[in-house]
Simulated assay, not measured.
Amino acid sequence: MSLSVRRLFILHRRQVFQDRRGNSTRTRNARLAAIHSFFAFAAYIHPDHAGLIGRVLAIPHKRQTRADVTYLTDEETDALLASPNPATWTGRRDAVLLLAAIATGMRVSELTVLTWADLHLGPGAHALCHGRDAKTERRR
């Protein structure tokens, strides 16, 4: 198989993954990164195939659009905080969790592992946030 045919084969397979299997551009780029990693390793083992390896490594990642990050407006925040039913225990619980999430910016996983020992009330009130990788932060 000639070198250009191999490169075309890789490009074709990449398109097949996206079109037929319905994979996203992100998945396609992740697989291309794995191919690039393998061929970068192969360059050390088989320098005699440098031409093919160079052409495979030159295959660019496909550009993808990024979604704009939006935040809640004051009206949306007020509506969200007004939605739990304060007459029930679960409604009061949900209101406290929503208020804590909005006030501190904690993730749901960080909120659900909070204990009373993590809450420090009084002057300089804060909550200890146990995040990923065992990192602990103070959130006001």
Rank of each mutant, 00 (worst) to 15 (best):
M1K: 08
S2C: 14
L3W: 02
L3K: 01
V5P: 00
L8K: 10
F9V: 09
L11K: 12
H12K: 13
H12C: 10
R14M: 13
V16A: 11
F17D: 04
D19S: 14
R20S: 13
G22C: 05
N23K: 05
N23H: 10
N23R: 05
T25M: 07
T27R: 07
T27S: 11
N29E: 04
A30F: 11
R31N: 08
L32G: 00
L32I: 03
A33R: 11
A33I: 06
A33Q: 14
A34K: 13
I35R: 00
H36P: 01
S37M: 08
S37G: 13
F38D: 11
F39N: 01
F41S: 12
F41I: 09
A42W: 01
A43D: 05
I45L: 14
I45S: 06
D48A: 14
A50I: 08
G51P: 01
L52M: 09
I53E: 00
G54M: 04
I59G: 00
I59V: 15
H61M: 13
K62A: 11
T65A: 14
T65V: 13
R66T: 10
A67N: 09
A67L: 15
V69F: 11
T70H: 12
T70L: 13
Y71W: 14
L72N: 03
T73L: 07
D74C: 09
E76L: 03
E76F: 04
T77S: 08
D78C: 07
L80F: 06
S83W: 09
P84K: 00
P84M: 03
P86Q: 04
A87E: 11
W89Y: 14
T90C: 09
T90R: 12
D94F: 01
A95H: 08
L97K: 01
L98I: 10
L99E: 05
A100L: 15
I102S: 06
A103N: 13
T104H: 03
S109N: 14
S109E: 15
E110H: 01
L111E: 00
T112I: 15
T112R: 13
T115F: 01
T115Q: 09
D118P: 00
P123F: 03
G124E: 10
G124P: 02
H126R: 04
A127K: 01
L128P: 00
H130A: 03
G131L: 01
R132D: 15
D133R: 15
A134D: 15
A134C: 12
R138I: 06
R139L: 10
